[in-house]
């Protein structure tokens, strides 16, 4: 049975806080500390400084951060547009439990394969000699093969849509499942059109799911190194690659500063999403 945390013996939750502090908060604190130091001849200088942050802003790494956020935002938006109708259909549209189970299973099966092997397939499809270019040439729509199909921001975005679709669908599906059928029937009965019901009942009641979906989709995508590397082909440098290259040249302080900045941006965004969700879920649109 669920007991509120206040009824749990202090020893048990204090031990949890302790473990959490050790495995998650301590490294973060370390990151924060390192970002305020400088390096000379690959040696940490124990002297507070904001040099690392100045380096982040003066080098091209700031643009990389912006580009990463942009790609993640575009993909998240596409996921919302795709996942909301799909999750709504899955939760409320289909009456058959079989269809529902199969659909949910199909969403998880791709995870049995590694992300790299799923992503690499796009290379063949989008390449200069791939089926898309071949078909377009054959139909006479284009004269030259399209070179922006692969190793471009386009291919990175396309490649990210698949892996991050389920993380948007599942929370939305759960939120929509929790909407009582009677509430939807009541809306119709009270004279609401389907669009009115969607915006005034389904969206406000689905907002917690949307918030969770955004967090689970947007945040991991920021740190994803696989898809941009395989489909960006060096043309689309994202944050994870940038941090990796910094670590490769043993520039720990700038890498830390970049990570801290990213953390601040993410915490700010999640707080914003949470605040909007809470506000709309309470007051309606």
């Amino acid at each position: 049975m669920f007991r509120p945390p206040t009824h749990v013996a202090p020893a048990s939750y204090m031990s949890f806080v302790l473990i959490w502090g050790l495995v998650a908060l301590l490294p973060t604190a370390g990151l924060l500390l390192w970002s305020t130091l400088t390096m000379e001849n690959f040696q940490i200088v124990w002297e507070p400084s904001l040099q690392a942050y100045r380096d982040v802003l003066s080098s091209g790494r700031w643009q990389v951060t912006i580009r990463t956020l942009e790609i993640a935002a575009i993909v998240t938006l596409i996921e919302i547009l795709l996942a909301v109708p799909f999750a709504l259909w899955l939760a409320k549209g289909t009456k058959s439990a079989g269809v529902r189970t199969v659909s949910l299973a199909l969403l998880t099966i791709p995870f049995f394969l590694s992300l790299s092997s799923r992503t690499i397939v796009w290379r063949g499809v989008l390449g200069l000699n791939g089926p898309i270019n071949a078909a377009l040439l054959q139909l006479g729509i284009i004269q030259e093969p399209l070179d922006w199909l692969l190793f471009s921001q386009f291919s990175v975005i396309l490649g990210l849509i698949g892996p991050y679709f389920p993380t948007m669908v599942f929370p939305l599906y759960l939120a929509f499942m929790l909407i009582d059928d009677e509430v939807l029937a009541a809306s119709k009965d009270l004279g609401a059109s389907p669009a009115f019901t969607f915006w005034n009942v389904i969206v406000p009641l689905g907002l917690p799911g949307l918030g969770a979906g955004i967090v689970f989709t947007f945040v991991p995508m920021i740190g994803d190194p696989v898809v941009p590397e395989l489909l960006g082909g060096g043309n689309v440098v994202v944050l994870s690659a940038s941090v990796q290259s910094l670590l490769r040249i043993l520039n720990y302080t700038v890498a830390s500063a970049l990570s801290v900045l990213m953390l601040v941006i993410l915490v700010a965004m999640i707080s914003l999403v949470a605040a909007i969700t809470a506000r709309f879920a309470k007051g309606g649109l």
Partner: peptide
């Protein structure tokens, strides 16, 4: 219709529930 489990909108308050049909 008055539904068996009322079908009230949980995200709206009493007045907003009553206003819903008029708003539609």
């Amino acid at each position: 219709t008055v539904f068996q489990h009322y079908g009230l909108f949980p995200h709206l308050n009493v007045r907003e529930n009553v206003e819903y049909g008029l708003r539609a």
